[in-house]
């Protein structure tokens, strides 16, 4: 029987490199990633120590040619069920491969995430509006939860903008 372990690991869209490095270190230590559930639960199987680059992508709508392009470049998709997130990996020996080779594309990836948070903001505002025009019994609780969600989205957006700023400061051009 292969030794397996399940790990819950918290990661965020504005510290993707840290998350990628964590997966790479696990592989280096002989823990090969086999499955990802609920975005945060990782199943590893004990195997060989591998030098494996992990790259995490965020895409809202992808076409078939997206997968084909990455495959042709030697990337393997770890799991398909955590869209809009895509975890790609590729083994390497010397030069560490990357899916994004310029800052502009990294900022675009960040902007796609920010856009999704804004959708959440609009949904919350819309629900809040419904609560105010309706006369629900639990109005106070619902409003409080919605306002709390808005504060959370605000936090996310602030973090994403900070990340974009950081990316611009260490600009890489292809």
């Amino acid at each position: 029987m292969k030794e397996v372990k399940t790990v819950w690991h918290w990661w965020t869209g504005w510290e993707i490199e840290k998350f990628e490095n964590w997966l790479e270190e696990m592989e280096w230590g002989g823990w090969n990633l086999s499955k990802v559930d609920y975005i945060l639960r990782f199943k590893f199987a004990k195997g060989k120590s591998r030098k494996m680059r992990y790259c995490v992508d965020h895409q809202n709508n992808v076409e078939n040619n997206y997968f084909e392009l990455f495959k042709e470049d030697g990337w393997v998709l770890v799991d398909e069920n955590i869209a809009p997130w895509y975890i790609w990996r590729k083994s390497y020996e010397y030069e560490r491969p990357d899916i994004y080779t310029d800052t502009k594309s990294l900022i675009e990836r960040n902007n796609r995430q920010i856009r999704n948070v804004f959708i959440g903001v609009f949904i919350s505002l819309f629900l809040l509006y419904l609560v105010f025009i309706g006369n629900f019994d639990s109005t106070k609780l619902i409003s409080a939860l919605l306002i709390l969600s808005l504060a959370f989205y605000g936090y996310l957006i602030a973090q994403y903008y900070r990340y974009s700023k950081k990316l611009k400061q260490n600009e890489i051009k292809c």
Partner: peptide, 28 residues
């Protein structure tokens, strides 16, 4: 050309100086 074809062509053209990543290529 298709995406990967462009990546190979550019790498050859620039003697390996410019390697466009798959994500950057798809985005462009």
């Amino acid at each position: 050309r298709h995406g990967y074809g462009i990546m190979q062509h550019v790498e050859k053209l620039t003697n390996g100086r410019i390697k466009i990543g798959a994500g950057t290529m798809y985005g462009n």
